[in-house]
Structures are given as structure tokens and as C-alpha cells.
């Protein structure tokens, strides 16, 4: 019991995730800055931002639904942290696992996006409402390809549990190479999930001010920003666990370093993608997802179905 509580709250649960989120945000920002030939923020900037925001006044608009407005940031953080517990980080065993946790993790990762929608919707301001509608439109566009892309490796591994998938690829060390198209698909989708350029349409600053977060200030905004940071780590870990399951059998120290490297690589890839593209329009985004990303994910699924037949013989 005490062990589980420690795992959930301290390591690798909430506190570890907060730290990892801060580091991820810092890395993302400094790498982004350096690619743009800027200096970038000092190392403590994400923490300083969090402290500054927390110290500010919490403003809840009169028109907004006060309960939902305050509840959404907390729900978002809770959902993201929970999903992390089912992802194997080093080795092939997650902290908790059961048959079918892939679906649960994907579902839990959808919740932050849903909370963004609800937060925007219950803010009732024009910009926030437009942002909320865009969030949900975008969700429909990328969620299906993401499911297909993540379920393809699971299909090959014949397991609906992330730990089971990891165990399968540990047993067959080179099979992850077949999932590379899925990796590309999921990297693109992560941009949408984390609302980064070119898919930062719901909070496009120059178009709709701050999108769903327009009305948010102070602590609640700090919580939302933390959610996005944590989501970045969780989603990168998911991608690393599903698509990059190599080097799992070298003990926990090597495994942990390798895990950090994988997550860093995924975040670096996301950062590179967000640096070199312009923001798409919502209709272009939906078109792009259904025209290119969904068929690519479908292809991955087909490849894995065929492979499964071939390999099982």
C-alpha cells in the first residue's frame, strides 16, 4: 500500500512527472530558440513562470460556469498523471498493467483535450468558444489515426497491454523496425495533441488571442500549462514505449538512461517539426489528417496484419 502510494505520488508518479514536465518544457523552449538562432530562456524559466502564474490573481469571468472553470485544470492534470502509470518506462513491466490498458491510456490521453474543450466552452467568451470548437474538430481528425497507429504494434504483439507489447518486442528485438511508419504518424499527431505549430489551431494566438485559455489566469492557467508539459512527457513516453521498444533488457539504470534518451529524442523531433512549419487552417488540418495521416496509419495496420500472418508461420 505504502509502496503504491509512493509510486503514485512521488516516483514515477506525480512529482517525478512535474519535474520531467518542467525539464521537457525547458528543453523544448531552448531547442526551439537555438534553432531560431536565439538565446532562449534560462534553465529556471518554466519554474519561474509557474510560480509567477500561481502568485497572480485568479480571475473567473462572471459569465463563466464557476465550478467547471475551476474543475477542468485539475481533471486534466489527474487524467494525464494516471495514464502515465500504465506505461512501461524501462524494462518491459509498467507499474500497473492489465490486458487492455492500451485503450485506457489512449482514452486517458484524450481527456486533457476534452477538458480544454469544456474549459473553453464554459468560459463562454467568443474567442474561447471558437477555440473550443476548433479543439474538438481537431480531436476528431487526429484521434482515429492515433488509435490505428498505436494499435498496429499491439496487433503484431498480440497483446492489448502496453507491458505485453514491451515484453513481445523484448523477445523479438528487431521487430520494432516494422512500426516506423506508425512512429512518423504518431509524431505528427502528438503535435496536434499537444497543440503545437502547425496544429496549434485551438490556441492560435494571432487569430483567436489565446483560444480556449483566453479567460484563464493565475493558478488555473498554471495548472493547464503544467498539464501540457506533463502530457508532453506522457505522450512521448507512450510513443517511446510502443514504437521504440529496444534495449529493454539491460537492467534499470541503463534502461532509465535509455528511456530518457528516447523521450528526449521524441521531444526534439516534435520541437523540430513545430519550428519548420507554419500553422495550418482548421480545414486544411482536417484534410491533411484524413488524406495523408489516416491512410498512413491504415497502411501500418495492414502491414502488421500481413506480417503477423507471415511471422506466425
Amino acid at each position: 500500500m505504502a509502496q503504491s502510494l509512493f509510486n503514485i505520488i512521488v516516483f514515477p508518479g506525480f512529482l517525478f512527472l512535474c519535474l520531467a514536465g518542467v525539464c521537457a518544457e525547458y528543453f523544448d523552449r531552448i531547442f526551439h530558440a537555438r534553432m531560431q538562432n536565439r538565446k532562449g530562456p534560462p534553465w529556471f524559466q518554466p519554474v519561474a513562470d509557474f510560480i509567477k502564474l500561481s502568485a497572480k490573481e485568479d480571475i473567473i469571468p462572471e459569465e463563466a460556469d464557476s465550478f467547471m472553470f475551476r474543475a477542468m485544470p485539475v481533471v486534466a492534470v489527474a487524467a494525464t498523471v494516471t495514464s502515465f502509470l500504465y506505461i512501461p518506462l524501462w524494462g518491459s513491466q509498467a507499474l500497473f498493467s492489465f490486458e487492455g490498458d492500451v485503450i485506457v491510456v489512449l482514452y486517458l490521453l484524450t481527456i486533457p483535450t476534452m477538458t480544454f474543450f469544456l474549459a473553453g466552452w464554459y468560459s463562454t467568451s467568443l474567442y474561447a468558444s471558437v477555440g473550443a470548437v476548433r479543439t474538438i474538430t481537431q480531436l476528431f481528425a487526429y484521434e482515429v489515426p492515433l488509435f490505428m497507429a498505436v494499435l498496429a504494434p499491439a496487433l503484431l504483439a498480440d497483446s492489448w497491454s502496453l507491458s505485453g507489447i514491451a515484453a513481445y518486442y523484448r523477445a523479438h528485438p528487431l521487430y520494432w523496425v516494422f512500426n516506423l511508419p506508425g512512429l512518423a504518424v504518431s509524431l505528427v499527431i502528438l503535435l496536434g495533441k499537444l497543440e503545437k505549430v502547425p496544429f496549434d489551431i485551438p490556441e492560435a494566438e494571432t487569430e483567436i488571442v489565446g483560444g480556449v485559455f483566453t479567460e484563464y489566469a493565475g493558478r488555473y492557467l498554471a495548472f493547464f500549462r503544467m498539464t501540457i508539459d506533463i502530457e508532453m512527457v506522457v505522450a512521448s513516453s507512450l510513443v517511446a514505449a510502443v514504437f521504440l521498444p529496444f534495449g529493454l533488457g539491460f537492467g534499470s539504470v541503463v534502461g532509465f538512461i535509455l528511456y530518457l534518451l528516447k523521450v528526449t529524442a521524441v521531444i526534439a523531433a516534435i520541437c523540430l517539426l513545430r519550428t519548420i512549419f507554419a500553422r495550418l487552417r482548421i480545414d486544411q488540418m482536417v484534410d491533411f489528417c484524413w488524406k495523408y495521416i489516416a491512410p498512413a496509419a491504415l497502411l501500418q495496420l495492414l502491414v502488421n496484419i500481413v506480417l503477423k500472418g507471415v511471422l506466425s508461420q
Partner: peptide, 16 residues
Amino acid sequence: AGHEIGFDTLLMYSWR
């Protein structure tokens, strides 16, 4: 123009 369409990299480079 780059900034308005979310292409901040273009903004940074052209202003540099």
C-alpha cells in the same frame, strides 16, 4: 506575415 500564420521561425530569421 510569418508570425501571423504561426511561422515564428521565419520571423526570427528575417528580423535577424
